[in-house]
Design a protein around this nucleic acid. Sequence first.
DNA 1: TCAGAACCTTGTACGGCGTACAACGTAAGA
DNA 2: TCTTACGTTGTACGCCGTACAAGGTTCTGA
Lengths: 243, 243
Amino acid sequence: MPRELIDLLWRDHPAAPQGGARGPRSRVTTGAVVDAASTLADAEGLAAVTVRRLGDALGVSTMSVYTHVNGRDDLLVLMADAAFARMPLPDHGRAGWRARVRRVADTNLALHREHPWLLEIEDDRTAFGPGTIAKYDHELHALDPLPLDDVARDAALTFVLDFVRAAARAQRPDPRADEMPQIWARWAGRLAEYLGDDYQLARRVGSAAGAAMNAPSSPAHAWEFGMARVLDSLAVAADGPRA
Amino acid sequence: MPRELIDLLWRDHPAAPQGGARGPRSRVTTGAVVDAASTLADAEGLAAVTVRRLGDALGVSTMSVYTHVNGRDDLLVLMADAAFARMPLPDHGRAGWRARVRRVADTNLALHREHPWLLEIEDDRTAFGPGTIAKYDHELHALDPLPLDDVARDAALTFVLDFVRAAARAQRPDPRADEMPQIWARWAGRLAEYLGDDYQLARRVGSAAGAAMNAPSSPAHAWEFGMARVLDSLAVAADGPRA
DNA sequence: TCAGAACCTTGTACGGCGTACAACGTAAGA
DNA sequence: TCTTACGTTGTACGCCGTACAAGGTTCTGA
C-alpha cells in the first residue's frame, strides 16, 4: 500500500506526505484519477468506472492507475469526498432554521441529481475525508438556532439528510426506463389476472400516486410532502412536545 | 426467456403458467432457487450469491440455475418479493394510527436486520410481485385513521418506510468492522494533524454522537429521534397545519 | 407403438472484472 | 557514477454472468 487512504483524502493539505522526488514524474495525479472517474460516473454510471476504462481515459495503462489510487474501493471513497468538497457551503447568515434546513436539503438534492452514483457509495471511511467533514460541520451549523444537544443535533441532521437521500433515490431515473413501456405492455394483462379483485386500496392509491408522474410512484409529490414533514417535526422537537 | 419475471413472481398463483409436462422432471424449482439464494445472502451477503455458488448449493450445475430463473437480476427481484411475502401482516384491529405506524416501522426494521441484503436490491420491478403488493396494501391500511387523500397517503407511507430504510442502513454492520480498529490506530494521529483546530463543531458533535456507540455515529439514538419525528410530523399533517 | 416434440441438464467458451507480480525504465541522491 | 527509489507496463490468475450447443429424458400424437 503505497499511500494510506487518509493521506490521499487529504492530499491537498500542507501536512500530507508528498511522493518522493526520485523516479520518473507521474504522468497523472491522484486528483486527476478521481476527476476522470467522476466524469465517467456522471456520464455512464458507476458501473462504467472500471480500472481499465479509467486507464484508457487517462491515456495510461490499466495498472498505472494503481500507482495513484490503492484500489477501486478506495477510489470510490475519494470520489465521494471530492463531490462533497465541491459543494457550496454558503454562510447561513441571519436566516431562520427553516430556511437553513431547506437550503441544506435543496443543495443535497441537487448534489445527488448531478451525481446519482453517490447513492451507490456506502463506504463509512468517507467520513474521514476533508470534504465530508467540512460538509458535516457546515450542515450542523444550520441547526444552530434550534435548542438541540449534541446527540440530538446529529440525529436531526441525519434525519434530514436521510430523507433527502431517499427522495433522490426515488427521483433517480431507472436504468430500465427505456424498456418499461414494452415490459408493461407484456405484463399489464397478466398482472390484472393475478390481482383479480384483491388489494383494492393498493391499486387505487398506487394508480393515484402514479397519475401525477409517468412512474409507478410520484417522487415529486413525495419530496414536497416529506419536506413539510421534516420541517414540521423539527419545529415540534424544538418547541417541546406540546406547543 | 422461458418464463416472464411476472409469472415467476406469481408462480404460486393458480393462474400462473405451469411448465409443460414433457421432458425430465426439474431437479429444483424456482422457489428452491430463491430460497437457496436468500439463505446464502443471509449467511454471507448478496455478493456471495453467484450463479455458480447457487448451483453448488442446490446440487445442480451452474447453467441449470438459468432454467428456473432468467438471470441474476431477476433472481434479486424474486428474493426481495419473497422476503416481503414472508412478513407478518397482522390485522390493524382497533389500534390508533400511532401504534399502527410504530408497528409497521418496527416490522420493517426487523426485516432489514434479518435480511440486510434487501438494502442493495433497488429494482423497481419488485413492485409487481405478490409479496410487495400485499405488503403495500397492508401498510396503506395502517394509515386508515388519518385523513389523507390517496396521493398523500402514498407519500406518507413512503416517508415512513424511507426513514426505516435509512435507519436500517445505519444500523447495518460495516463489512469492514473487523479492520476498523487497526485502521483507526493508523489514521487517528494523521487525522488530528490534518484537522488542527478546524471544524470544532463537527468534532464535538461527532464524538458525542459516537460516544453512545462504538461506531462513529449513534444509529440507536437516530432511530428513537427519527421515529419521534415521523410520528410528530404525521400528527401535524393530520390535524392541520396549526393545531 | 414409436417417432418427434418439448423440456431439463450440462460443459465449454467468451468477454468482462479487480488486481498480484515481476520486469523495466527513469530520475534524483550519495 | 552508481545506487536507490519510484512510475509504468504486460502478463496472468481467479472470479463473474451468461450465450450456445449437445445430449438425455419424458410425454404426445399419429
